[in-house]
Design a protein around this nucleic acid. Structure first.
Length: 421
RNA sequence: GCGGCCGUAGCUCAGCGGUAGAGUCCUGGAUUGUGAUUCCAGUUGUCGCGGGUUCGAACCCCGUCGGUCGCCCCA
C-alpha cells in the first residue's frame, strides 16, 4: 500500500505540541476580550473575486500564491482564503454589522498561500486577527498596538519591536508613486532586473531591495512621509503621541509597505531578529476604503494579522503542566468496576481523572500514571475492593516535579476531598 | 518559482560499495499487587520513493517526493 503523506507545506499539530497552541489561543482570546473585542468567524472558502478586488490584482498573493479552483459541481470560481481581513469585511458588509455603530472583533483561523515552504513559512498557516470596523482613529490604531504589546507580555516574548509607517491616502500615495518612478527613471542604470520589472507595477517594493546599487539609489529617493498632507500627518502624529503615552516603544520605518493594496495611512509590523534575518510576526494597517470597494458603506477600519506558527516558534518548549488530578490503577474485574464508578464520581466533582486502559501489571500501570503527569495515583486492587478503600499515592510536588510519596488508604467517598486538600 | 544542503528505528544521529548500528524511547525482569534512579534482557527499520551502474548499493548516478537555508515574498 502506498504511504500517504500530508500535503506539502501543511502540517499536523501532534498532541506533544498542542499545549503550546492551546496556551497561545487562550492568551490571545483572553486579552482580546479584555479590550472588549468579540469573536467572529468567516468561511475558509470565498469567491475568488473577493480577494482579487481587495488584495489587488498585481500583488504577489493574487498573482502567484492563491489556492484558486473551480467547483466541479457547479463551475463556481473559489479560493482558499490567503488572509482573513477580506472575508471578515465581506461578512460585515453582508450583515450590515456596523449598523449600530463601530465594532471590534477578533478571529483565529487557517489561511493558505502557495509558496515554497520554509521554517516559519507554510502553505497552510494560522493567523490571529483583530479588526476594528467603523473607527477612524488614530485612537484605535494605538489601541490594537497596545493590545498586541500586552499579548507579547502575556506570552513572555520580549524581543519583538514595533515599526510603524504612514502610507497616506490614495491621492497622496499616487502623487508619491509618480515622484518615486521619476526618481528611479533618472537612475535607471543602477536598477537590477527585479527593480526594473517592478518600476511600473509596484515601485514602492523597490525600496525594500537588498541589491547594493539599488540601496544607494534608495538613499536619495523621496520619502512617502514627506508627501503626506496635513490630515494624514496629524493622524500619524496622533498615533505616535498615543503610543508614547502608553509606553509602547516603536520606531518609524518609512520603508514598511505591506503586501496588500487595500492599506492606507497607518501601517505597522512587529518584527523579531531572533531567527537571523528580520521576521515579521504580526502586521497590519488601516484600510479605510475597503468596505466601499466591496460594496459596503464608507467605513473606516484597521486590523492586523498575527502569524501563529511564527509566534509559537518564539515560545519555550516548557514541559506541559500536569493537567490530570489523578490516574486510576486497577487490577481485576471487580476493581475495574470500582475504578470506573470512582472516576465518574470524581469527574462529577470537577476533577480530571484518567482510568488506566488495557490491563498490565501494577508496575506498568504506575509507570503510565507517572508519565501521564497526574498529581495522584489511585490504586484499586482486590484488597481495596474487599474493604471499600482506595490507595492514594502522591506522584509530584506542588511544582509538578516527581516525588517518591507514601500512599494513604482512605475510603472511596473521601477521595475527592483528599485530592483537593 | 530559482539556487545550495539534507532524508537511516517513534525521536537524536553514526555508518558512505561487502551480514543495518548507538543513545533515547518502549516491553519484561531484579523488586513477593506500586511510578524517579541503578542494573540485566528484549523489540525496533521496505536506510523517503522510483529507476540505473555493479558480482554486490543505505553508500555511486538520474529522477521524484519531503525538509531546510538563501533569493523572492510575507504572517
Amino acid at each position: 500500500m502506498e504511504k500517504l503523506q500530508a500535503v506539502r507545506g501543511m502540517n499536523d499539530v501532534l498532541p506533544a505540541d498542542s499545549s503550546k497552541w492551546e496556551f497561545f489561543e487562550a492568551t490571545v482570546t483572553r486579552v482580546a476580550r479584555q479590550y472588549g473585542y468579540r469573536n467572529m468567524r468567516a468561511p475558509i472558502v470565498e469567491y475568488t473575486p473577493l480577494f482579487v478586488r481587495s488584495i489587488g490584482e498585481v500583488t504577489d498573493i493574487v498573482e502567484k500564491e492563491m489556492y484558486s479552483f473551480e467547483d466541479k459541481l457547479n463551475g463556481e470560481k473559489l479560493t482558499l482564503r490567503p488572509e482573513l481581513t477580506a472575508g471578515l469585511v465581506r461578512a460585515a458588509v453582508e450583515a450590515n454589522l456596523t449598523y449600530n455603530g463601530p465594532v471590534r472583533i477578533y478571529t483565529l483561523g487557517e489561511v493558505f498561500r502557495h509558496e515554497r515552504p520554509q521554517k516559519g513559512r507554510y502553505r497552510q498557516f494560522n493567523q490571529f486577527d483583530v479588526e476594528c470596523f467603523g473607527f477612524d482613529g488614530p485612537d484605535v490604531d494605538a489601541e490594537i498596538m497596545i493590545l498586541t504589546a500586552r499579548i507579547w507580555r502575556e506570552l513572555g516574548i520580549d524581543d519583538v519591536r514595533l515599526e510603524i509607517n504612514s502610507l497616506g491616502g490614495l491621492d497622496e500615495r499616487a502623487a508619491y508613486r509618480a515622484k518615486l518612478i521619476a526618481h528611479y527613471e533618472a537612475n535607471l542604470p543602477a536598477l537590477d532586473d527585479e527593480a526594473k520589472r517592478r518600476l511600473h507595477t509596484n515601485p514602492m517594493r523597490i525600496l525594500d531591495s537588498k541589491v547594493a546599487s539599488v540601496i544607494e539609489v534608495n538613499q536619495t529617493a523621496p520619502v512617502l512621509l514627506d508627501s503626506l498632507q496635513d490630515e494624514s500627518r496629524a493622524h500619524f502624529e496622533g498615533l505616535q503621541q498615543l503610543l508614547r503615552e502608553a509606553n509602547v516603544p516603536f520606531i518609524v520605518n518609512p520603508r514598511i509597505v505591506r503586501g496588500m493594496d487595500y492599506y492606507n495611512r497607518t501601517a505597522f509590523e512587529f518584527v523579531t531578529d531572533r531567527f537571523g534575518s528580520p521576521l515579521t510576526v504580526c502586521g497590519g494597517g488601516r484600510y479605510d476604503g475597503l468596505f466601499e470597494q466591496l460594496g459596503g458603506k464608507p467605513t473606516p477600519a484597521i486590523g492586523f494579522g498575527m502569524g501563529v506558527e511564527r509566534v509559537l516558534m518564539m515560545l519555550d518548549d516548557s514541559t506541559p503542566v500536569a493537567t490530570l488530578d489523578a490516574y486510576i490503577v486497577h487490577a481485576g474485574e471487580a476493581a475495574q468496576k470500582k475504578a470506573s464508578a470512582l472516576a465518574e464520581t470524581l469527574r462529577d466533582a470537577g476533577l480530571a481523572v484518567a482510568q488506566h486502559g488495557g490491563g498490565g501489571s501494577f508496575k506498568s500501570q504506575m509507570k503510565k500514571a507517572d508519565v501521564s503527569g497526574a498529581r495522584y495515583a489511585l490504586v484499586i486492587g482486590d484488597n481495596e475492593v474487599a474493604v471499600g478503600t482506595v490507595a492514594v499515592k502522591p506522584l509530584r510536588d506542588g511544582n509538578g516535579a516527581a516525588i517518591q510519596g507514601e500512599q494513604a488508604i482512605i475510603t472511596s467517598s473521601a477521595v475527592a476531598a483528599h485530592l483537593r486538600a
